[in-house]
Nucleic acid binder design. Structure first.
Length: 564
RNA sequence: CGGAGCGUAGCUCAGGCGGUAGAGCACUGGCAUGGGGGGCCAGAGGUCGGCGGUUCGAGUCCGCUCGCUCCGACCA
């Protein structure tokens, strides 16, 4: 491709709206443009990258025996009603009406659609297992689209759904996808981690996330360098046994005056005690409107995902000042003693002695509180958010914490959708049973951003070879010099004939501008044709380190052969 | 959805006292140049997000509205 005939609108300055490297460079280097918040156009260069990512995914999915389909983007509301997600999905679901008033959703995911297809066409155990996948644009009306391609309202996704006759077989399908995902992300050239994850609203038995390590990532993960354990902090088990304080003899319960002192830090300072001996009492309102209290040690953070899972609700939120007032609870001095809503405790509170809690009375705390003498929680549950330094649940060595971008997520769904939608098959024994499902997603467009987050420097993008829009870029520095142009043209033709994807910068521009553009665009290999042609030499560079190697023009074939 | 901020040329931004619109870069033509966004000359480009109000007069003041961004909540 000749740059003079191509379309690479580069920008010298970053648009003010872009904050993170992938967003800045993809805009500046002419890969994407924004149409509206969270909605992007892919320019020729951007589409090439997207297609490369798609094809790598497609290759491995096909090899794994998955069957590609293309489902409609417009999905009838009736399907969503069947699983209850027409309501549950909430405002994130883009909804539209046809001329007759019938409601549709722009597909944010396709469990309902694929399950409908399967229930209508699969009857027997002989038809199973099956794994269907598609690569398609998805729509989610995100409350807050951000970071360019990382969180968009319209984005490209690979979604796959497996259907099996038994849990055992479903686990097999799941394991195959797990392996396939490892192959895909490795071939994409990314530094990634597979972590144990929470199943979230999609439901199911268990799930794993594939996370690309990135400073700007939204996924918080803990991992163990020693044994390889890795989990999203939402899912990581908290190994409290190793984090306990030494036992103490119970002292008499005492109510103390603590005027205007309510936060853990304040109380710790005021009473001169370790924050670990202060217990926070958090009041949560569950989605059925009921209130519960959760106790957690002062140095720990509550994990709402664990809370929501434990209570098996769709939503829970910390009670507001108004809600506390309605319940007759004193904000800032809440405590378990004498509280008339159910009290649950995080395991960090177990075996804690002589601790401090609010006294449910303005400006008072209890000290030397002990369980079960002074109160008894309904149950001790793991509600803690895992963090750096916590003992690894597998091998007990201290966990590390990092952030990353979730680019893949696999779930063993079980029968949540097949039962709701009556997707049954007849088994060998002649009985009708629900199909066991799994679902597997990869954020294709997000991967493009993730690759840039992980591979850039201060001058621009440095594409991993397998997803670079072109492999080789030729810079002709002086287009007025016939020698330079002849040599460059010759190399260009040779590269093309060898099947190398090559971008030839033949534009009449200053050398500096060409170098800057080339760095921004980030094509892995570069041949610079300039003043060296006088001595029959050109330069070969790698974008990754920009080191220059002089090559004799006569030896160019050899070099190109290495790039094939 | 709660909080904050911003909408002036393609991009980054200035102007803000109310008096009819600016810079740099990019773009077009020309000249010189040719190894890291370099130089000179000439040019084109704007209903100052929209609607309404105040005023003799609004980019500037007021109200509403739309859009965008950030923090948070949310988020297969």
């Amino acid at each position: 491709m000749r740059a003079s005939q191509y379309f690479i609108p580069t920008m010298k300055e970053a648009p003010a709206e872009a904050e993170v490297p992938s967003h800045i460079y993809l805009l500046r280097a002419g890969y994407i443009r924004k149409l509206a918040a969270g909605i992007y156009e892919y320019l020729p260069l951007g589409l090439r990258v997207l297609r490369k990512i798609e094809n790598i995914i497609r290759k491995h999915m096909d090899e794994a025996g998955a069957l590609e389909v293309l489902l409609p983007i417009l999905t009838p509301s009736e399907l969503w009603q069947e699983t209850g997600r027409w309501e549950v999905y909430g405002k994130e679901l883009f909804r539209i009406q046809d001329r007759k008033g019938r409601w549709f959703a722009l597909g944010p995911t396709h469990e309902e659609t694929i399950t409908d297809l399967v229930r209508k066409n699969i009857r027997s155990y002989k038809d199973l297992p099956k794994n269907f996948y598609q690569i398609q644009t998805k729509f989610r009306d995100e409350a807050r689209p951000r970071y360019g391609l990382i969180r968009g309202r319209e984005f490209l996704m690979k979604d796959a759904y497996s259907f099996d006759v038994s849990e055992e077989m479903a686990v097999k399908s799941y394991e195959i996808m797990k392996e396939t995902y490892h192959k895909i992300f490795s071939e994409l050239g990314l530094d990634f981690l597979m972590v144990e994850a929470d199943v979230g609203a999609i439901g199911g038995k268990y799930s794993h996330e594939f996370v690309v390590k990135a400073a700007n990532g939204e996924a918080h993960i803990v991992y163990c360098e020693k044994c390889g354990y890795a989990a999203n902090v939402e899912a990581a088990k908290y190994e409290f046994e190793l984090d306990k304080l030494p036992p103490e003899e119970p002292k008499p319960l005492e109510k103390v005056h603590t005027p205007g002192v309510s936060s853990v830090e304040e109380v710790a300072k005021f009473l001169g005690v370790d924050p670990k001996k202060i217990v926070k009492t958090l009041v949560y309102i569950l989605d059925d409107g009921s209130a519960i209290a959760v106790l957690i040690r002062g140095d720990r953070e509550l994990n709402e995902t664990k809370l929501i899972n434990y209570f098996n609700v769709l939503d829970a939120h910390l009670a507001s000042s108004e809600e506390l007032e309605k319940l007759g609870i004193v904000e800032g001095f809440v405590g378990p003693i004498g509280l008339d809503i159910p009290v649950y405790a995080d395991i960090s509170v177990k075996d804690l002695h002589n601790f401090v809690v609010g006294a449910n009375e303005k400006d008072y705390h209890y000290i030397n509180v002990n369980i079960p003498r002074d109160f008894e929680p309904v149950e001790f549950v793991d509600f803690s958010t895992a963090r750096e330094g916590d003992p690894c649940p597998v091998c007990k060595s201290p966990l590390k914490e990092t952030t990353g971008l979730e680019v893949g997520h696999i779930f063993l769904l079980g029968t949540k959708y097949s039962e709701a939608m009556k997707a049954y098959f007849v088994d060998k024994d002649g009985r009708e049973k629900p199909i066991i499902m799994g679902c597997y997603g990869i954020g294709v467009s997000r991967l493009m951003a993730a690759a840039v987050e992980q591979n850039h420097d201060e001058n621009g993008i440095i594409w991993p070879e397998n997803i670079a829009p072109f492999k080789l870029q030729i810079l002709a520095l002086n287009t007025k010099d016939k020698n330079v142009m002849d040599v460059a043209e010759d190399i260009y033709q040779k590269a093309k004939s060898k099947g190398i994807e090559v971008l030839f910068d033949d534009r009449d521009m200053s050398p500096g501008a060409k170098f800057k553009d080339a760095d921004l665009i980030g094509i892995p290999y570069r041949i610079v044709v300039g003043r060296g042609v006088k001595n029959r030499k050109v330069e070969f560079q790698k974008r990754a380190n920009n080191e220059k190697i002089e090559i004799e023009i006569e030896k160019i074939d050899e070099l190109l052969d290495k790039l094939v």
